[in-house]
């Protein structure tokens, strides 16, 4: 098991946002996490990357506890996040944003050239301010920036949010290529269809608890709706 979350409790401010959440991720696997607004998806991502304080033993990467480590340590262990809302550095160009992603200097196949090969449009716009790009292109920069740290686990927080369906399709089509060398991906989504199509297994979160888990193909729409909305 590459990443193992066991009985995770986390707080957002004073309120408890996650209750006893467990989740497994195998090497080379794409796992989807579904849930409505406020279900705790983002808090889960923040817990995994050290932005939210959690118990040490609740999160294990290759059997090693990484819960509660500072974000800078976790990225060195090989977990990278594409944050919700992209959050590119507005004062930087596309290329500089990518360079920041490589700050941890983890070795691996991803470097600027590999990113430009994956998203050729970015090479064209490499010296433009990152925030001057279209939404879809900005999302590519955000994904590229996370890949630059050569993670073993890539966490994608709502990368489809605010993008046109065509663009979403484009971005998700790059996933198999990204995973081709055994990298694992956690895809957090509000969009059920997108999540079900790209993932091997699914977890549903509802009010901070795992309400459903299973193989993506085997789960029916009704099961997911129930776990998603609680109806």
């Amino acid at each position: 098991m590459l990443l193992e979350v066991q009985g995770l409790n986390a707080f957002y401010g004073d309120a408890q946002a996650l209750f006893n959440v467990s989740l497994q991720l195998r090497a080379g696997e794409v796992v989807g996490v579904l849930g409505a607004n406020g279900a705790g998806k983002s808090t889960l991502m923040k817990s995994l990357t050290g932005l939210v304080a959690v118990d040490k033993g609740a999160i294990r990467l290759r059997q090693q506890p990484i819960g509660g480590m500072p974000p800078g340590e976790i990225v060195k262990h090989g977990v990278a996040l594409v944050p919700e809302g992209r959050r590119l550095f507005p004062s930087m160009t596309v290329e500089e944003n990518l360079m920041m992603g490589g700050y941890s200097k983890r070795p691996g196949r991803w470097n600027k050239h590999a990113i430009f090969e994956l998203f050729p449009i970015l090479e064209e716009k490499r010296s433009q301010p990152a925030t001057s790009l279209s939404g879809g292109q900005q999302q590519m920069v955000a994904i590229g920036r996370a890949l630059m740290s050569n993670p073993d686990v890539l966490l994608c927080d709502e990368i489809s949010l605010g993008l046109a369906p065509v663009v979403i399709k484009d971005i998700y089509e790059s996933l198999p290529d990204i995973c081709s060398d055994g990298m694992s991906v956690v895809v957090v989504e509000q969009d059920v269809i997108v999540a079900q199509q790209c993932s091997a297994r699914l977890y549903c979160l509802q009010e901070g608890r795992v309400s459903l888990e299973g193989t993506s193909d085997a789960l029916t729409r009704d099961q997911i709706s129930e776990a998603y909305f609680g109806i």
Binding site: F89, G101, Y103
Partner: peptide
């Protein structure tokens, strides 16, 4: 760049390992 990164968005800068 690290100066600009922490000034732009401290949280994301820390995600990069700073």
């Amino acid at each position: 760049r690290s100066f600009r990164a922490v000034s732009d968005d401290r949280e994301v800068a820390e995600l990069m390992g700073l």
